[in-house]
Each structure stands twice: as structure tokens, then as C-alpha cells.
Design a protein around this nucleic acid. Structure first.
Lengths: 120, 120
DNA sequence: CTCCTTAATAGTAATGATTACTATGTAAAA
DNA sequence: TTTTACATAGTAATCATTACTATTAAGGAG
């Protein structure tokens, strides 16, 4: 991979955010620094960075969201739809289940977040 | 919900399949019984059946797939992309993580399936 | 430093899954 | 049997993502 200003900018945005941004949100933030950056460039670089394990992606409601490359899972609130980082408490990587080699796994927790419980 | 031939057909297809079908595959199968069934009807009824917990849905590579309403997780092979049912081995439902109430959770295991290991 | 190759980009068009819309049909209650 | 609201077929629209193409610019070779 060559160096590129656009890719560096996209990486910094994802790596410094705690907000689980989607591609379009990253595009909007990137335009503050590079006003004429292309949405296609954002998508291509997000894929490249994900392939090179520099960032991580996961899906909520069919939309890909991007995250710093730190191992954790996600809790998604049924009410307010917020996404909360959850540390992995068990490491099942490189184990076998029914003969299938598990290299990685993702847990998506669903329920009611602490804030929505407080409001009830 | 009223009774409808189309909805019954769609439910039977999902409930009798082990193949984790997507909406279009269900549409193709349904047309064997109801040749002029509409793709929109398939989508609407899959959503209705999911909302009523008669079937389940999950996402792989951004595409919604449908499954019998039996509690289990999924293993997705990195090589052949097959999807294998995995029984849930731990029940974390209705527990709290960091104050957030977990009502349900899904685990997506990723790795190399038994069949692809055998071929290597 | 300059040239050259090739990856990277901007801008736009295309794709494909899903949803929305509308006139017509039909289940089932009154 | 009549009526009413839900369901359907067929089509159009939406929206995230990918593909395409001419142009730009890393960064290595000379």
C-alpha cells in the first residue's frame, strides 16, 4: 500500500472515534479536512484498512460500521439503538466446535441499555 | 394476522429448510407453489413472521437470511462460506453486563469448517 | 532531480437488496 | 350477505455499496 493523505485521514477518523461510524458518517467527517474527497475513496479505503486489520467492521441492521482494531463485542439497545462496547470475557479462538476450527467470533448482545432502564 | 396462503407457504419453506435461505431464494421456492407470488409479499411476510417470532433472521455479508425459530448460533466458513448451526452452550440471557440488560445474544463464529480442513 | 510505472483518486454510473406505493383482491367479522 | 380492513401483485423508489474511467500522484530506478 502506497501512502495516501485520504487513507491516513480515514484511518485517523476511525481510530480516534468511539461512535461506531458508518461509511457516510466517515465521509462527512473526512470532508472537513479534504473537502472534495470521494465517497468511493472512503469505501475503498475502509475495505483496505479492514483487510489489513488496521480497523474492524461489524454490521447493525444491514449497515456496515467501523471501529478501532481493539478486540471487543457489542451491545445494541432495542430502544435507543445505541451501541456499547463490551469486553470479551471468554476466549474461544482457535478452538474446535463440532470439528470446525474457530478462528474468531463476534457476539452481538441485544437488550435494554443502562440509560433506557433508568428512564423507565 | 389474517390467514393467507402466501404467508403459510413462506412459513413452511423457512420452517422446513436447513439451508439458511435469503429472501430471493425463498421467493424462488414459493413460486413453485404460487407462480405469481410477488417478491414484495415475500419480504413483507418474512418481516411479519420474524416480528411474531415464528422464524428468525440473521445477517451474513449484509444479506438477511432466515431460519427456523430454534435457538442456536452460526459458524461461517471463511473458505467455502457455508453456514453451520451451532447449539448455544452458555445461556447469558436476562443477565446484566455493565448495567445493560441482555435479553438475547447472537454469536457468529468464523473459521474453517470441518469439510474444508479435510480437503487441505 | 527527472522519468516512469502503477496504485490511488474524484466523479459518476451501475448494482442489488430492500422498502414504498397503489389499485385490486380476499379473509373473516357483523 | 355485506362490509371493512388487511393482504396481494406489480411496479417504482430508495439507499448502501460497488464498478468504471479518466486523471493524479507516490515513490523507485536511473
Amino acid at each position: 500500500m502506497r501512502n495516501s493523505i485520504q487513507r491516513n485521514c480515514i484511518f485517523e477518523i476511525v481510530n480516534n472515534s468511539y461512535d461506531h461510524l458508518n461509511a457516510y458518517q466517515i465521509y462527512e467527517l473526512a470532508r472537513k479536512t479534504i473537502p472534495n474527497i470521494s465517497l468511493g475513496t472512503v469505501y475503498r479505503n475502509l475495505s483496505l484498512l479492514t483487510d489489513h486489520h488496521m480497523i474492524r467492521s461489524f454490521i447493525v441492521d444491514g449497515i456496515i460500521r467501523y471501529d478501532r482494531n481493539i478486540v471487543h463485542d457489542h451491545f445494541i439497545c432495542d430502544k435507543c439503538k445505541c451501541i456499547i462496547d463490551i469486553p470479551k470475557n471468554v476466549d474461544d479462538n482457535n478452538k474446535y466446535i463440532d470439528g470446525n476450527l474457530v478462528i474468531d467470533y463476534d457476539i452481538k448482545y441485544k437488550g435494554i441499555c443502562r440509560e433506557c432502564q433508568r428512564k423507565e
